[in-house]
Design a binder for these strands. Sequence first.
DNA 1: TGATTTTGTTCTGGTCAAGAACAAAATAGG
DNA 2: CCTATTTTGTTCTTGACCAGAACAAAATCA
Lengths: 384, 384
Amino acid sequence: MKTSAPKVSVTSQTLGRNNDQVREHNLAAILRLLSQSKSLTRSELVELSGLNRSTISVLMTELQALGLVSETSPDETPNKGRPSFVASLSNEVAVFGVNIESSFTDVCLVSLRGEIIASHRITTPELPAPEGIIEQIKNAISGLMSAQSSTLRIAGIGVAVPGQVRVADGQVRLAPHLQWVEVPFASMLEAATELPVFLGNNASLGATAEHAFGAAKGYEEVVYLYGGTSGIGGGVIVRGELLRGAAGYAGELGHVVLSDSSREDYSGFHGTLEAALDRSDVDGSTKGSTEALENQCRLLAAAISSFANIFNPEIILLGGFLGSIFDQAEEMVTGFALERILGAPAENLKILRAELGSTQIIKGAAGLPISALIQAPKASSAVL
Amino acid sequence: MKTSAPKVSVTSQTLGRNNDQVREHNLAAILRLLSQSKSLTRSELVELSGLNRSTISVLMTELQALGLVSETSPDETPNKGRPSFVASLSNEVAVFGVNIESSFTDVCLVSLRGEIIASHRITTPELPAPEGIIEQIKNAISGLMSAQSSTLRIAGIGVAVPGQVRVADGQVRLAPHLQWVEVPFASMLEAATELPVFLGNNASLGATAEHAFGAAKGYEEVVYLYGGTSGIGGGVIVRGELLRGAAGYAGELGHVVLSDSSREDYSGFHGTLEAALDRSDVDGSTKGSTEALENQCRLLAAAISSFANIFNPEIILLGGFLGSIFDQAEEMVTGFALERILGAPAENLKILRAELGSTQIIKGAAGLPISALIQAPKASSAVL
DNA sequence: TGATTTTGTTCTGGTCAAGAACAAAATAGG
DNA sequence: CCTATTTTGTTCTTGACCAGAACAAAATCA
């Protein structure tokens, strides 16, 4: 395969660094700043980066030459002095975000800024098979590309999968709701499209999307819980980055043990959050008894308090039907949760509903190739 | 206060970098390599760091001038060619590690390599009061110093506290077993000793010690669970670094909710791991029924499986009385745990007893000023 | 003893960011 | 309308750093 997921090998921490890496780091720093705000003036970049004006000048020239950044003439700014150039990420480069679910697969063209440019939905009456869906994704990509300018360059494809994904090589280990077992999806899709492919778990990518664009923007320590048709998943942002664990399977927050109950979740485990809080219960109980709602709130709150004590996050986000529960009984959930969170980690904790809608996971998936590009601008652009 | 805990502000990620920081980074890289192995030849440093031989030469000269590294003449090496210098962290610089418990406080002089040079135990028949124990720590430091060479320089003091510690300023928020509430311990001890002071939670520091010197050495993703007289605590290593959370309270693994039981833990929470697995039960049951042991194993295993699914660690370590349970029934614990860990994260997971003995927490505490020194060699040495 | 191998040191060259000097482009005030 | 002022972009110089080459030093091997 051409590229695998971004390697954040820890040996690189201890490694020596030379001037080339300084330049790469500073280019990445500017791109990261630009990806956080839609657009920034050069003088804002000077201030935010801490780099000298002359250095920013050189870096911006290089980024423009790489085609990653475009500078527009200054807006009407009623300021004294020479107006500063306005820079933003180029729209000559984009990525594809793909979200595979059991009944449909969404393929979207996404700009470097995270805006969805065009999208296509593949519906699958039967469960999608890897080979078949790859063919359909390939066709969808061709279709979406043909409607775009021919100068558009594609940096890669990010794919969200409802299951356990080994990030190192993009292997789908197990996706129960697709009935996929050990599918080397990234290398298959790379072979078909000749583009770098990055895979991620759907709930984890929901977390990164909320972190990049949604309710968790600006926070560094985030716990995200998502309740969907395929159970309860999650994602955790630690030090501003997704918690991956040894092989990328971290964040299975639905499978924490919460109770002595013998009820089983989708993986056959008993007493877990996912087992306790089934979507069907929740949907059924919308008009159900307040007792049922209270019970759900207690369970959700127990999970929230565990995660607060474990991670000491700044913010805990609830998405999917967990967000619905929260909407119905915010005070109850928060109240029950605070009963079992230690004083210190409870202090500045925010518990909120997730913000982004249905495009959330797609945006998270698109974020994979985007951040790969941002982290290594020179190397990535060369291949483009 | 002179110094606070190492600031790993995430804004620094996006910040620009200049040449000065390259040098600091490379000096730190060498020190980190040396702290991982007892000693390394220059040619090994060249290989491990990826830096040029000439660069290593310059860097080593600088580190020797700073007094942080000493080079000895080559050992008897039956190799061809000119023998390489053997470098190791200087023993002219050391730190103090302090572990405060309710009935005693240990003060140890620890070398940069993590070896305990000298130690002193302060016994406190009554619970230690902050002012009193600071005076005693100060005296212990003086006593330990007087027996050492006058050329010995002290880089700082690391203190382990059984409670919640705000790492930013070293404030003890709540230490129930000491009955301390809102004690600005770091600044108090800094004022008394005129040395930089770093505070940490005792269980978290146990985790860092196991990571630096013990059973978790060489791993990047570690979950550490410790059962002591003051309840159950923990520490998590993520990407090779301690999980701190928003303010440093992360890792309260004893307070995860595990069951519907109404039994309460030391914080008054019901159904938590700490509530379920009280030390007194465990000690009492050593000769107790196998049923009781089995029940304990189930509870411990439930927690282990939760943490495996959440963190996807390479290794889970059990210390204190949790290690005793594990020793008694390793297969049962592992078996029960694997019942509820997803296939992928269970794959290469190791569950082991923690390795280090009673000096573990002290070494972890000493690690705080040591890693501060390593991360910023020039700045720190200047103050020494 | 001399050739070989490996390592430490020194010197040169290329790259980088910072800072100074200058040019450009706006506003403010007469 | 013109000029001072302010802010920003560009260019040039300077200093710091690392890489690589050339050379010296210190061991083994024949």
